[in-house]
């Protein structure tokens, strides 16, 4: 897991509405594709449920896994994204991540499924399962983390603009230090999250491949 559960009221309106439109389009595309492959419905749902269950079991202070990248590898990029979106809908309903920022949160976490799924298929079956999973998951987590930094940067601009408006109305002056302060706070958490998600994804893959090799056959 390399994401922040962004809450309502943090992002500027153009960002969360844009996120909602992009996520809506991707979800619609995935649903239309899924309608023609109904047997996959149960697998998408099971993967979403497993991610949700994994999120319900914390591994330590605010660290949990979500298996999004693995969902992309097992189900394909679009179906993996759909599983992630479903998982985040339930999270938003219980206050874990905002409802209005569901689109942006889905893009941040779902990018892990999109990138890992596409890379895993693009690397070709001749490379060996574990190296393919390692490369796909690592790149997916890095991409997702960079997106998080970009989104928080945009959020910072919006919030700083709000702070400046406050100043104009008699508030105290302050420096524009948002990202400078946030990154040192976020970077250690990010490093732990990426390491845990990558390690668990690899170990889970190795285990599944040992006991049920057919799950990865033909992928």
């Amino acid at each position: 897991m390399s994401h922040l559960h962004i809450s309502d009221g943090i992002l500027p309106w153009w960002l969360w509405i844009g996120g909602m439109v992009c996520t809506g389009l991707l979800t619609l595309l995935a649903l239309l594709k899924l309608r023609k492959q109904r047997r996959l419905l149960s697998q998408v749902a099971i993967m979403a449920a497993l991610g949700l269950a994994a999120m319900n079991i914390p591994l330590g202070l605010l660290v949990h896994i979500n298996l999004s990248a693995l969902a992309g590898i097992l189900l394909g990029p679009l179906n993996g994204f759909l599983a992630t979106f479903i998982m985040l809908v339930f999270n938003a309903l219980i206050g874990h991540g905002g409802l209005t920022v569901l689109g942006v949160n889905a893009l941040l976490v779902g990018s892990e499924a999109l990138v890992a799924g596409a890379l895993f298929r693009g690397l070709g079956a001749d490379k060996g399962l574990l190296p393919r999973v390692a490369v796909s998951v690592l790149i997916a987590l890095v991409v997702s983390s960079l997106l998080v930094v970009a989104v928080t940067g945009a959020a910072g601009l919006g919030l700083e603009a709000l702070a400046h408006q406050h100043e104009e109305h008699g508030g105290e002056g302050h420096e524009t230090v948002f990202l400078k302060t946030l990154l040192p706070l976020y970077a250690p958490l990010l490093a732990i999250w990426v390491a845990v998600e990558l390690g668990v994804s690899l170990l889970v893959t190795a285990y599944i491949n040992k006991v049920r090799g057919d799950v990865f056959a033909g992928r």
């Binding site: 938003a92 219980i94 206050g95 905002g98 409802l99 919030l159 702070a163 406050h166 508030g171 706070l185």
Partner: peptide
């Protein structure tokens, strides 16, 4: 995390309040 990074307690309180109240309402 956002509120502290902003170093502006007025907007920070706004961010915290919005996040907590909206989460509690939906939940």
């Amino acid at each position: 995390v956002f509120a502290i990074s902003l170093r502006d307690w007025n907007v920070g309180v706004l961010v915290l309040g919005r996040a907590v109240v909206s989460a509690l309402t939906v939940a």
